[in-house]
């Protein structure tokens, strides 16, 4: 129910001169977050770069809209379908229709509960791995030093929050000098991150007991960084911050020295998807059932200002 008034189903074709241009339908969830908007932007860029005719459909967070969009893609006889599924169940029938029409379907970002012969491949990040990369950075950074970590969790019960937490815990498991002393949900929001961080600081001797912050996403971390500053501490030095997502505002915080590291969840899911499709069109190579996107670690040494400039117009 987050997004109800939005751009209605818009079908946009990127004109290409090549007569043999492939047509790909893309059913996007909706504009639920800046990351999602960036994913849409990049998908369009990738299609344009490859001369693919992309038909875009915004589902406004509703599965029935996505099913309707897929059905219309099948009717139009597109060459392939990209689907960022809003929920994990209820896709079997429409995917069978696509299979009967011999249209390959590639899942983006999220997975579904359906037999895996109903889609060609799924492109996405491994959230456990993201947590492990974040934890690994902290392990390397603190060495043998004693380090108390506070954790800002994503929405309670969401698979991303569970898996990123699991990955981080895996990474610090063999390092008894690093321990998570407080962990609370900030609901993936900036204001949630700020409010919870304030209570962490309050509860841990004004923040003096805290050595590092691990946040399940950058938005919460950006809020928490403000809370740390307002408590009179220096984020990035007094309290190390490591987070996941790679949104522009966090890169700016890194450029200012207020944040230390982030693990990028790349919005470029379409690139690997188009690669797989083009290989299949060319010589019939079938991709593996899951294509894992890289989870790249960025630190202050990786030109955060440049990374900010590269991302700020992607729609985050």
């Amino acid at each position: 129910m987050k997004k109800l008034l939005a751009i209605s189903v818009a079908v946009m074709g990127f004109g290409t001169t090549a007569a043999v241009a492939e047509t790909v339908g893309f059913s996007q969830i909706g504009s639920e977050s800046g990351w999602r908007a960036a994913e849409t932007t990049i998908t369009r860029q990738q299609a344009e770069k490859r001369g693919i005719d992309l038909r875009f459909s915004d589902a406004q967070q509703r599965q029935e809209n996505q099913i309707a969009a897929l059905r219309s893609f099948v009717a139009q006889g597109v060459d392939a379908i990209l689907l960022a599924p809003v929920v994990s169940t209820g896709w079997d029938n429409i995917l069978m229709e696509a299979r009967d029409a011999e249209i390959p379907v590639v899942l983006l970002d999220r997975r579904i509960d359906a037999p895996d012969d109903l889609y060609m491949t799924a492109v996405g990040a491994d959230s456990v791995h993201e947590g492990e990369v974040a934890g690994g950075w902290l392990v390397d950074e603190v060495g043998d030093r004693q380090c108390n970590v506070v954790e800002l969790q994503g929405t309670t019960g969401s698979s991303v929050a569970i898996e990123r937490k699991q990955g981080f815990e895996n990474a610090i498991a063999d390092h008894p000098n690093i321990s998570i002393i407080r962990s609370q949900t900030g609901d993936f929001t900036r204001s949630g991150g700020k409010e919870v961080m304030e209570s962490f600081l309050q509860a841990e001797n004004g923040g003096r007991n805290i050595c590092a912050l691990f946040s399940h996403n950058d938005d919460m971390a950006v809020g928490a960084i403000q809370a740390i500053k307002e408590a009179g501490l220096n984020p990035g030095e007094d309290i190390l911050t490591v987070s996941i997502d790679g949104v522009p505002d966090y890169f700016r915080a890194m450029a200012n020295g207020d944040a230390n590291a982030t693990v990028e969840l790349t919005p470029n899911m379409a690139g690997p998807a188009f690669d797989a499709l083009q290989a299949w069109w060319q010589d019939g190579t079938l991709p593996p059932k899951f294509i894992q996107t890289p989870s790249t670690l960025y630190t202050q040494a990786d030109d955060p200002e440049g990374e900010y400039q590269r991302r700020k117009d992607l729609g985050y």
Binding site: M1, L4, L5, R36, A37, G315
Partner: peptide, 29 residues
């Protein structure tokens, strides 16, 4: 309540609209 979030999203273009103005931030923090 239902449609208003869409209006807000149209204004922010669906992202977090970040600004830097100490005078305005003063009202919040």
């Amino acid at each position: 309540m239902i449609s208003g979030r869409g209006i807000a999203q149209l204004i922010t273009e669906g992202r977090i609209l970040t600004f830097n103005m100490p005078g305005f931030a003063f009202l919040g923090s």
